[in-house]
Design a binder for these strands. Structure first.
Lengths: 125, 125
DNA sequence: CTGAATCCTGTATGATACTG
DNA sequence: CAGTATCATACAGGATTCAG
């Protein structure tokens, strides 16, 4: 996790690559988490429920690194029972905005890609 | 490569996840390649030169799967010496458009993220 | 020039069990 | 509830070599 080589957001240009950055999107859960938090602050268990398939460990790891990058904030509430809530920071919110076109595109074109694959696989045995 | 579980573009929603898709962005080079091809068709060696750090293998692998997904086209020119050119398909071009906001955001916010990290690391020994 | 075939390794992820 | 600690593993990615 402490690896400075990892976790930069959406980088694809030479300069960034030289800076030792790789797309944050590269990891499996960040986008999903940010996307979920786009609907408003969430607690740990809530996220765990909403995001099908995350292990507890990976959710923790992902939240930690997003927090480190200033994309989300983590707030501990000292009530009983104690709980923690996560929310997008302004930076995180702007990131989500920037990523939304891609999410939309994806949603609109999954079919097309699946088709392209089928055709391609049919042509090449 | 042939794994149907891999390689779907920019997916982050439940439905897609259920469909067994994960973000194409997840892999290290796809975005960079698509981005490079955004400037126009390119030949293999050209891409290899422009994209610092790709191994020959990974460039091939990436090109193949982008081709399979209908994002890029591959054209063999029967001249001497023979060469191959790659270009974005219309689908690929629309994808690049959808991803551009993220690239821009990334470019504009690398600093902020790096700072956030430094602060965070300073606070937490 | 454009790849395919191998071999090898780091590491991202998962499963499981334990804790304040 | 919200994690941490271990352990195990698959797989992406790199280096290298060979070929049409």
């Amino acid at each position: 996790m402490g690896d400075p080589e990892r976790m930069m957001v959406g980088v694809a240009e030479e300069t960034h690559r030289r800076a030792g950055c790789r797309p944050m999107i590269e990891d499996k859960w960040s986008l999903t988490v940010v996307s979920a938090l786009g609907a408003g602050p969430r607690r740990f268990t809530q996220l765990k429920r909403e995001i099908t398939g995350v292990s507890q460990r990976m959710l923790t790891v992902t939240l930690r690194s997003l927090e480190r990058d200033g994309i989300i904030s983590r707030t501990v509430h000292n009530v009983m029972p104690a709980h923690v809530s996560y929310a997008l920071t302004p930076l995180g919110a702007s990131f989500l905005e920037a990523v939304t076109p891609m999410l939309t595109w994806s949603h609109d074109n999954v079919k097309r890609i699946v088709e392209a694959r089928l055709e391609h696989d049919a042509r090449t045995p």
